[in-house]
């Protein structure tokens, strides 16, 4: 089976810092891959490269049979990749529904002419966009569906994270990249998230890569875990394998030990 995403020898440097160093990485269709590592390990940078926000100094990236090196984020969205952000970044002055509707952008095509004439084709496309947006909002129950017309900035923190996932879902992506989806959530919300991530795959067929600091979340959802430190991949495998890996423990404990001295 060919990989959905196959990354080889990915490297990027910022000035004197080697943020990502020769990382090989893949995700298969229907797989949930967890990416872990201490702060500054290069996890988000890796996401930024894969999703086209940064262009790598070296390395090849194949997504769904396409060479995606050098493609812009919008082109990647069209190919079926969508992400969320560590610091939630919604379109704050737009409503919840509109945020999700923007997600459908690459799947629709009405332009200025369609907007001006508002032809039956444009109208039915708008209906379809709205319908699809409502569908993804409904995935999170009435937390989002009930607040369609609220401004995104008015939502509670956890709902803002949910809306970000909904917006990514609305792009009709094959692969979702979630950057710390559980950050700032309380235990009950985390439980909800764990089951939602599971359902994203089992019911809706998304493949998922997630960065997460919360080990219970990683443990519950990941088929495979990749551990990064100092921009390098130190190991990968099942959660049990990775969590008992000596280098991983050092990476985390080393840091914990340093912190305890402060």
């Amino acid at each position: 089976m060919s990989h959905l995403l196959d990354v080889k020898g990915l490297s990027i440097r910022f000035g004197g810092v080697q943020a990502v160093n020769k990382v090989d990485f893949h995700a298969d269709p229907g797989e949930i891959v967890g990416v872990i590592g201490p702060n500054g390990a290069g996890k988000t940078t890796l996401f930024n490269i894969i999703t086209g926000f940064y262009s790598p100094d070296e390395g090849t990236m194949i997504f769904d049979g396409h060479n995606i090196s050098g493609l812009k984020p919008n082109a990647l969205t069209r190919l079926g990749m969508a992400r969320t952000f560590q610091s939630v970044r919604l379109f704050n002055a737009m409503t919840v529904l509109e945020n999700a509707m923007v997600g459908q952008h690459t799947r629709t095509k009405a332009g200025v002419w369609g907007a001006l004439t508002r032809s039956s084709k444009t109208k039915s496309e708008e209906d379809r966009i709205r319908e699809r947006a409502r569908e993804v909002l409904a995935f999170f129950g009435d937390r989002l569906s009930g607040r369609e017309d609220a401004l995104a900035s008015d939502l509670a923190y956890a709902d803002r994270r949910r809306l970000e996932i909904a917006r990514a879902m609305a792009t009709d992506a094959k692969l979702l990249l979630l950057d710390e989806p559980a950050a700032g959530m309380n235990p009950a919300e985390k439980d909800g998230l764990i089951s939602q991530i599971g359902r994203l795959r089992s019911e809706l067929g998304y493949s998922i890569i997630l960065i997460e600091h919360d080990m219970p979340v990683i443990k519950s959802v990941s088929d495979r875990v990749v551990a990064l430190d100092h921009g390098e991949k130190i190991t990968e495998g099942t959660y049990d394998e990775v969590s008992t890996n000596k280098q991983v423990i050092e990476a985390y404990l080393g840091k914990a030990a340093e912190e305890s001295h402060l």
Binding site: F53, P73, N74, R83, M94, V102, G103, H105, R167
Partner: peptide, 16 residues
Amino acid sequence: AAMREDEDIAEGMGVS
């Protein structure tokens, strides 16, 4: 509107 709110994210959501 998405572009006005956040250019990067708009691009990330597929807006050229």
